[in-house]
Design a protein around this nucleic acid. Structure first.
Length: 191
DNA sequence: CACGCGATTTGG
DNA sequence: CAAATCGCGTGT
């Protein structure tokens, strides 16, 4: 098992989004380790992509995306949920991958608590849910991916699941053309 | 500085 | 199907 370094993200967001499937996302919280396998991602491709936050230029919020790849972009949505993204591509080219779902692997008890004591196994099956389960908020914004509090690891898997691609969700404000781009990736049969 | 809305989730 | 809830971008 090896830790992913920032240079893994120095590529276009679509490639990174696909390659992140099957990777392990880990969080150190209150002396415990939480996390799971990434099973769903979405790519956001810079100023030209009307679905990308950077399509409206560099602002205090999107500043991180304009920086070096391999850093987290965490923001708040709907006033109550956090979204975890990882900056990709070259410096000055604002791309990012949204981590949308995990298959819980480690620290399930604490994750369940952080999620408000849900009884089912659907701890991290949504971008807001996984941030809640891993105690991720804007405090982690702009941190490098090789941080000690939140990092990624390469897992050797004998059986790679199938990768499904489809249109991204929740971007009704974007141009029709961009809404149709198949930049959402799902790992099927994760095991 | 006021206003509108959003890369979501949950419960009815 | 609508509420919860607030930072950010836009325009005054």
């Amino acid at each position: 098992m090896s830790r992913l370094s920032p240079d893994f993200f120095a590529r276009d967001a679509v490639s990174v989004a696909r390659d992140l499937l099957g990777k392990l996302l880990l969080r150190s919280h209150h002396g415990k380790t939480l996390g799971g396998i990434i099973i769903e991602t979405e790519a956001y491709l810079g100023e030209e992509d009307s679905a990308c936050h950077a399509s409206r230029g560099c602002t205090p919020r999107t500043r991180v995306m304009y920086g070096a790849p391999g850093h987290y972009y965490v923001y708040l949505i709907y006033g109550m949920y956090h979204m975890l993204n990882i900056v990709t591509g070259e410096q000055g080219h604002p791309q990012a991958v949204l981590v949308r779902a995990l298959q819980p692997v480690q620290g399930m008890e604490l994750m369940r608590e952080l999620r408000g004591g849900v009884v089912n196994n659907r701890l991290c099956d949504g971008p807001g849910k996984l941030c809640q389960a891993l105690a991720i908020d804007r405090e982690l914004n702009a941190r490098p991916v090789d941080s000690d509090v939140l990092w990624l690891e390469n897992v050797l898997q004998m059986t790679q699941g199938r990768i499904l691609a489809g249109p991204r969700v929740g971007i009704g404000y974007a141009d029709q053309e961009d809404q149709r781009k198949p930049w959402r990736f799902i790992l099927e049969d994760a095991s």
